[in-house]
Amino acid sequence: MITSIFSKSKPINFIVVFFISLFAYVIANFKLSNEVYNFNDILEKIVIFGVCYFSILTLNFIVGKNSLTQKNNYEILLYSLFLLMLPKSLLSDKIIVSNFFILLALRRTLSLRSQINLKKKLFDASFWVAIASLFYFWAILFFILIYAVLLLFTDNKIKNWIVPFTGLLTVLLIVVSYSIIVNGDFFGAIKIASDISIDYSNFNSSKDIIAITILLSFGVWSSIFYLASIRKRMKKFRPIFKSIFISLAIAFVIMIIAPDKNGSEFLFLFPTLAIVVANYIETIKEKWFREIFLLILIISPIVLLIL
């Protein structure tokens, strides 16, 4: 029954996902956070949640535009369930905004497969990655994805390899100009937190350990089938599916090296992880097993909330 509801794109699916993600956001900011909010803070949180939900819609657009799934809404359901399973991922407003810009960059990067307006798309992708890194420095690692996609499309034109740096430089010039006008110096507006940490003591609670174990277990299991399925794809689509996995790997690296491990760094992982798991669900032939698989992902966050 669950799979039949989300096996086709329907307006009701987006409403369900909206309330799941809203519930996760409320838990993160009003239960897990110790902040005391005034009226202006509440308005700001409403805007940030709008960015969060629009990220989900952007993911749906990326998936549909590039035929990454079989015209279903599994990916947005999974995304929202991941948020509910680990609501800590919504604690950082800056990472929510940064993740949104990374999705915009991913959209432009994947569109390179059409080989139309390459320079414009490369500039846009690098521009969005640079903007994302202003909110969270390590988002700059997604710059690697742009060149990985160029390699996958076997683009050997030197001009195209230079274009992404112009996007990066453009953002740098804008920020420096802003800093000169507002702060009276060159780099006062640029705050780079490039530290690395391998301290995972913040995840010592049973809830976090169970949630992360479930996410990683489902992710690794689905990734095995995802990588195997790439060979079966049409040749023109293989680079796209490889790009998604590279993006997933980059997000995983960010999660590993994040200086402040409060759970919010997992947000970068969720969009591409949702695509990978959604692809695995599509490969399951037995309907009963597909139902159980999804049911576990639905029940797990509910159980974790009760614990």
Results as ranks from 00 to 15, higher is better:
249 A>K: 05
277 V>L: 13
269 L>M: 14
234 M>D: 14
245 F>C: 02
234 M>S: 11
238 R>W: 03
245 F>G: 02
247 S>K: 01
248 L>I: 03
241 F>C: 05
268 F>C: 04
280 Y>F: 15
270 F>D: 10
253 V>D: 09
251 A>P: 00
259 P>C: 11
240 I>P: 02
239 P>L: 06
231 R>I: 06
246 I>E: 01
265 E>K: 05
255 M>H: 00
240 I>M: 10
227 L>C: 08
253 V>S: 07
254 I>H: 04
229 S>Q: 11
223 S>A: 15
267 L>T: 00
245 F>P: 07
230 I>Q: 03
249 A>D: 09
249 A>V: 14
263 G>N: 08
261 K>I: 06
226 Y>D: 06
265 E>V: 00
278 A>Q: 07
259 P>M: 12
247 S>M: 12
274 A>R: 07
268 F>G: 02
270 F>N: 06
227 L>F: 13
235 K>L: 13
223 S>M: 15
269 L>K: 07
233 R>Y: 04
240 I>E: 05
250 I>C: 08
251 A>E: 01
247 S>F: 10
267 L>A: 03
278 A>V: 09
230 I>S: 10
247 S>Q: 07
277 V>E: 10
266 F>L: 14
234 M>G: 04
277 V>C: 03
238 R>E: 14
235 K>F: 11
246 I>P: 06
273 L>E: 14
268 F>S: 03
242 K>R: 13
242 K>E: 14
224 I>R: 13
234 M>V: 03
260 D>H: 14
280 Y>A: 02
262 N>H: 12
274 A>W: 14
232 K>H: 11
267 L>R: 01
225 F>E: 12
266 F>H: 01
262 N>Y: 11
252 F>V: 07
280 Y>K: 13
227 L>S: 09
279 N>I: 08
